[in-house]
Design a protein around this nucleic acid. Sequence first.
DNA 1: TAATTTATTTACCAGTCGGTACATAAATGA
DNA 2: TCATTTATGTACCGACTGGTAAATAAATTA
Lengths: 205, 205
Amino acid sequence: MKIGQKSVCCIGRPRAFDSEKALEKALEVFWRKGYDGTSLADLTDAMGINKPSLYAAFGNKEQLFIKAVDLYENRPNSVFHDALMQKTAYAVAEYMLYGVADDLADKSHPNGCVIVQGALSCSEAAASVKEALINKRVGHEAKIAERFAEAKAAGDLPTSADPEALARYLGTVLQGMTIQVTNGSDQQQLREIAKMALMAFPQPQ
Amino acid sequence: MKIGQKSVCCIGRPRAFDSEKALEKALEVFWRKGYDGTSLADLTDAMGINKPSLYAAFGNKEQLFIKAVDLYENRPNSVFHDALMQKTAYAVAEYMLYGVADDLADKSHPNGCVIVQGALSCSEAAASVKEALINKRVGHEAKIAERFAEAKAAGDLPTSADPEALARYLGTVLQGMTIQVTNGSDQQQLREIAKMALMAFPQPQ
DNA sequence: TAATTTATTTACCAGTCGGTACATAAATGA
DNA sequence: TCATTTATGTACCGACTGGTAAATAAATTA
């Protein structure tokens, strides 16, 4: 609905910070410290803004967390979406296992996965956040199961295969790998785990 | 060093609570809420004592957590120790996977594993607790690797087997299963995961 | 009974928690 | 220039954080 006007954007004083970059900073803190472990002071320090700006732009701590996790899910190099587009169920699992291994080993961002670690055990104040993350994890597994069901219909998984069980197994290994990296496992070790996990997966043909 | 005297125990006013039971209550709270998510008020409420008693008996929040986790590790029905005593490496893995599946499905205690979830992502105040839990997880895997190395020497694992890689894979699946149960997986589903994970493990003979 | 030792209760500490009221600053359109 | 709108900085809110000082209570030994 662009109307060729010189008005930059909106009425009122323009915000002095980049909303997206501030959200990235917030994500990094939540990722590192979890929801309960992150204070508003941690957030405003990292984001370079003060509390009223944070509340005006993002709602409150909980809504900021959800927005940060949404950003996390839609990261440009998200392994998840690319994996689902592989040609066979085996290739999907393989892409996801090695892709996550490589991503987890990447030291340019905090350890692990914010969806797994953000609010695993938590205070009552974080209960709704915990539930939101559970829904995301379950939803991801459901999408994998759906992809495996397609593969089964397409004939590249045996008729005896259980798409949901396969998805749960794959999810289990991926979630376990996020803990392994916190334990100190490096890229090679994570890829070894991926390789072993694949041995339990129905081979193509 | 029992000397047959009628003195019950010690000098001074006796404590009015059962130290072990209070510790069990503390464990349950930490298990459910994690270290950051648990407040001293949560603890004193659950333990039925007040703060000065807690501090006199257990030190501080951090020391109480460590003591609670020690209690957790030495639970009577701890799968871990029993698993290591099985006759073959495969039997060790099998016992551990199915044992953990059953234990995780047990609704008489909080979900998951306090060693995995207690301080995965956490505040700076919990950094030392996080490190202690990492050490425990790594230590457990090291004991499994040791057991697998014995098995390899005994000839019940192929000479090509890598005991440490096998232990890491097993640990990964077990840790992933603790998250699965929080996601809502039931006993049957956890046992399915255990079954699949075993398919990647070197078969006996 | 008196002195000693330890546990409990109450009340409190400074610091931090998530969140907001209010005054001011910077942009807009009229 | 002026009213309007939105963002910012400061200063504050009550509630809660982990932790403790001090008084009292209950056991011991002498």
